[in-house]
Design a protein around this nucleic acid. Structure first.
Length: 636
RNA sequence: GCGCCGAUAGCUCAGCGGAUAGAGCGCUACCCUGCGGAGGUAGAGGCCGAGGGUUCGAAUCCCUCUCGGCGUACCA
């Protein structure tokens, strides 16, 4: 259960984000892999007022300790928060309440001392103490106004923070078996993984997105035989689908497509169990183009060579089917705005001897045992429920063995500082043994973070839609893309906490599409674009920001300034789901401003000032939508 | 059985130790002589699943329970 508590721990920590110290992944709780983070903005080009305020308070407390104004107790966690009501100012701090007990002083008195000691920066207009002991900050309007210029100056870098310190992180997600089309559940993993990757990039990590293609193993066998059966049926032969095969219509379609392209040369002589039948050189070896033109990766020439030695029509047909499916999958993901840097083929682990390399490494560590004809990883010795099979008694490595080799490759060969695996919650049982085995490989298990998302129930008109590749009955992601469109899907999927199971009601999603929050946010962006279009030719960059004084204008600046905080929090918590909420808040603030403040007017100076503000808002909206993976239209 | 996740407005969900619990949809009443009304303003609507505990302070942390979802393979 440790991985989960560490997610909670992350969330807790992210709630109190602080400056200084480098981002570091610490470990360890007694039970396993609790993970602690700190991060650094010192010397960063990106400045966060929240961090400065924290420094101010910490310094004041330290000074009070030194001068004896406060009894020298342990420095509590100094969290700078956004108060729920803006009557309490822009930021609030509750240190005084937290240290009251240890200091044996009344919280109000402590707060008074801190405020008296504090070196108040120019950005802060007022520092008050409020019952029962809060310290409230109110930002200076002058400073706020200047932030409009600062935002515009940052331009594309606006919102960036230095959490990642250039560390290399791999986000592996989707990784759906290439035995059928994507469905909405995998769409959730896609949206989550990609938005997380975008957030991490914005937060200063070097990110690689990877799709792990499970093109080996027993599921693949069943798929190969299924394609073969449909292929034979296509040519009028008798053929039965294997009992654990894939009955979906799409398999027949794949078989037909292959038949159209390749003819009947994979029929072979025999029926259910085709005899080895060498295929003509250069033709029988299916070597379809690798995804995204990535050469030398995954199953390439090496895989082809192996296949030529033991030609097997079912396998050859399966390979072709997999390629066709991967093309579809790639297209669907592309429509969702998801693109991978690399498609990693499980088969390549076998072809390149990486399974053996991983097993050897485990053996060297004395973590492997042979029993009952099988090879086991001795995970029970480190608190796991039981040992786990790596190689079955029939000699075939398990999925677990592949994953061990895969993670050895990620950490040891490719050297990622951190790896995030995004898995569906049905893989939860796989997490502890992966953590254990990564450690057995000599890698700090804190560098592996597994993010689980709860499954999606597809609902139509309030009734559940049965799903499952093996039953052959499901609604594909593509159908939903056609029906609802990518933007609402992503906005919806990204916006929910991964921990919460969700119902995706197709009828509702479609019916609500014209009042969907995503359009509310996009409309705000289109409005900014409309205004700036209309003001084309006005050089507003020289506008005088001191003309901004309406409450709606200042409220908007305050909201814009939250972007880096949201990015930092999301990166630390590895949770992008606050972004759509923030987008809505931004849109609301803008729409209110729009209603109350006419931008383009006879007052040229005021017009220029407000155009600046609109441009800063547009930049913030666009950045937020982009992090979610949703388009920012110029018009709607 | 054991483990993990969830339970907050009529619905879909945020909030996860702080001050009066929020948003969207739906509902009610207002605002179109100006930059796009896919908009704005105001309102009704909550024992934050139940019960204990910790704390100055709990929707938030701990324990017990209830109800859902998932997992518990020589499947992947």
């Amino acid at each position: 259960g440790a991985w989960c508590s560490h997610l909670k721990e992350r969330r807790r920590l992210s709630a109190r984000i602080h400056s200084r110290a480098c981002c570091s992944l610490l470990t360890l709780s007694p039970s396993g892999w609790c993970l602690a983070l700190r991060y650094c903005v010192e010397g960063s080009p990106t400045f966060m007022i929240r961090d400065e305020l924290r420094e101010v308070i910490e310094e004041a407390v330290r000074d009070a300790f030194a001068s004896g104004a406060l009894p020298a107790v342990a420095m509590p966690d100094v969290a700078i928060e956004r108060p729920s009501s803006d009557a309490h100012g822009d930021y609030a701090c509750s240190v005084a309440l937290k240290m009251a007990r240890a200091a044996r002083m009344a919280p109000m008195a402590i707060a008074d001392v801190i405020v008296a000691q504090a070196h108040v920066p120019a950005s802060v207009e007022a520092l008050d103490v409020a019952a029962p002991g809060f310290i409230n900050f109110r930002l200076s309007t002058d400073w706020l106004r200047r932030q409009v210029d600062a935002i515009l100056k940052e331009d594309a870098a606006w919102g960036s923070v230095e959490v990642g310190q250039g560390k290399r992180v791999q986000v592996e997600f989707v990784s759906a078996n290439p035995t059928g089309p994507l469905h909405v559940g995998t769409g959730r993993g896609a949206a989550l993984g990609d938005s997380l990757a975008r957030v991490l990039e914005k937060a200063g990590y070097r990110v690689e997105r990877e799709y792990y293609v499970n093109d080996a193993g027993s599921r693949m066998e069943a798929f190969n035989l299924s394609v073969q059966a449909r292929y034979r049926q296509h040519f009028g032969h008798e053929a039965a689908l294997p009992s654990d095969g894939y009955p979906g219509d799409y398999v027949s379609e794949l078989a037909a497509a292959i038949a159209d392209r390749e003819g009947d040369r994979f029929l072979g002589d025999a029926g259910a169990t085709p005899s080895p039948h060498p295929l003509p050189e250069g033709e029988g070896t299916p070597t379809p183009p690798l995804p995204l033109g990535e050469a030398g990766q995954g199953r390439g020439a090496a895989a082809g060579r192996v296949r030529a030695i033991t030609p097997d029509p079912a396998e050859a047909l399966g390979r072709l089917g997999v390629q066709l499916l991967l093309d579809q999958i790639r297209e669907d993901l592309e429509r969702l705005g998801v693109r991978f840097d690399r498609w990693f083929y499980e088969q390549s682990l076998f072809d390149e001897g990486k399974i053996d390399a991983a097993l050897d490494l485990l053996r060297q560590g004395g973590r492997v045992v042979e029993r009952e004809g099988a090879i086991w990883f001795t995970s029970a010795s480190v608190g796991e429920d039981r040992d786990n099979v790596l190689v079955r008694s029939n000699g075939l490595p398990t999925y677990f063995a592949s994953d061990v080799a895969y993670h050895r490759d990620k950490f040891i060969e490719r050297g990622f500082d951190m790896v995030v695996d995004v898995w569906g919650a049905d893989h939860q049982g796989h997490v502890p043994r992966m953590k254990a085995v990564v450690e057995a490989l000599g890698v700090d298990p804190a560098r592996l973070v597994v993010l689980l998302y709860q499954l999606v129930n597809l609902v139509r008109g309030g009734r559940p839609v049965p799903m499952g590749k093996r039953t052959g009955e499901f609604v594909t992601l593509r159908e939903v893309l056609d029906e609802v469109g990518p933007d609402p899907i992503r906005f919806f999927l990204v916006g929910r906490s991964p921990d919460a199971m969700m119902d995706f009601d197709l009828d509702l999603a479609k019916a609500q599409s014209d009042v969907n929050p995503v359009y509310y946010v996009q409309y705000a962006h289109a409005r900014t674009a409309g205004i700036l279009r209309r003001a084309a030719g006005v050089d507003y960059l020289g506008g005088d920001i001191s003309r901004l004084q309406e409450p709606a204008e200042l409220a908007m600046i305050r909201k814009l300034l939250m972007l880096p905080e949201i990015v930092a929090d999301a990166a630390l918590a590895l949770a992008p789901h606050p972004l759509p909420h923030f987008g809505q808040e931004l849109a609301t603030v803008f729409h209110t401003f729009y209603d109350q403040c006419r931008v383009i007017s006879e007052d040229e100076e005021l017009t220029r000032a407000r155009l600046k503000l609109v441009a800063a808002c547009q930049l913030t909206l666009r950045t937020t939508l982009d992090l979610i993976g949703v388009s920012a239209p110029e018009s709607m």
